[in-house]
């Protein structure tokens, strides 16, 4: 078998790890503030899973020769982050966080499903594990979207408008990388456009079944740039906050 392209793999791993880290961080901000206690607890569980997943992905990067996971997460510059814009936004109202969770986690579940068969076997191995964890997250999201989409006019309207707000951001998940061809040819990952196609086919019936109407993809401008290190104004303050204690003394053991 040909040598796999390390740079292509590293790029893919950073995109995923940074998404998980930043969204995990955001979801944890619901702790103590949820609309009901059960949702505080659920968002915290999902945040812990996402943090755990990002740690595993940074560990793979470390195994490929990059710095240790704490340094990668807590001591990298904003421009070196490859997360998509969707995960960067503050938690907002519950309707926003729920919709983000629905759109993002459904794409993650499909992504990890694809990666379970990756030719890069360390990634295939953790993808199979994450796919199991994601099943609970998507079940949670689907249930809540259906409940709030169908409960009353007030909740339906809130969910619909947050869908419209989130949709261009969610398309940014699938911003193509410079390595699409290589990754596909080498059997590492079938590619972002492939994933986007599957994702659209997956969410459409779920949204329709929840009384929501799917925005028109062709007239929607995807929020690209995150994968290339160009971020929204929300990422920098998040990183400053996240690293506030760590940076008191990065060489100290905390």
């Amino acid at each position: 078998m040909n040598e796999l392209n390390k740079d292509a793999i590293r790029d893919l791993l950073y995109r995923m790890a940074d998404d998980q880290l930043i969204l995990g961080h955001r979801n944890s901000e619901w702790t103590g503030l949820g609309p009901i206690l059960e949702e505080d607890i659920a968002f915290s569980s999902m945040a812990q899973d996402k943090l755990g997943q990002s740690l595993a992905l940074y560990t793979l990067l470390h195994d490929l020769g990059d710095k240790d996971p704490d340094t990668l997460a807590f001591n990298r510059e904003e421009k070196d982050f490859k997360c998509c814009h969707l995960v960067e936004y503050p938690i907002g109202g519950y309707e926003f966080s729920l919709m983000r969770h629905f759109l993002f986690d459904s794409s993650e579940a499909l992504r990890f499903g694809m990666l379970a068969g990756s030719s890069f076997s360390p990634l295939a191995k953790i993808a199979r594990k994450f796919r199991g964890e994601l099943r609970y997250h998507t079940m949670h999201a689907d249930t809540w979207i259906r409940q709030l989409g169908g409960a009353n006019e007030e909740s339906r309207a809130k969910i619909q408008s947050s869908l419209e707000f989130c949709f261009p951001l969610a398309l940014g998940i699938f911003e193509p990388s410079d390595y699409e061809k290589t990754l596909a040819e080498q059997g590492v990952f079938p590619g972002e456009s492939e994933l986007q196609k599957e994702w659209l086919a997956h969410i459409e019936p779920l949204l329709a079944g929840s009384g929501l109407s799917m925005p028109d993809v062709s007239s929607c401008k995807p929020s690209y740039g995150g994968r290339k290190g160009r971020h929204t104004e929300h990422l920098k303050p998040l990183l400053d906050e996240m690293t506030e204690v760590y940076k008191i003394d990065p060489s100290a053991e905390w």
């Binding site: 503030l33 609309p35 519950y94 409940q147 009353n152």
Partner: peptide, 13 residues
């Protein structure tokens, strides 16, 4: 604030 922000959700449940 948390209770007020989440009121519509509880209503919808």
């Amino acid at each position: 604030r948390a209770e007020e922000k989440g009121e519509w959700v509880r209503r919808a449940l």
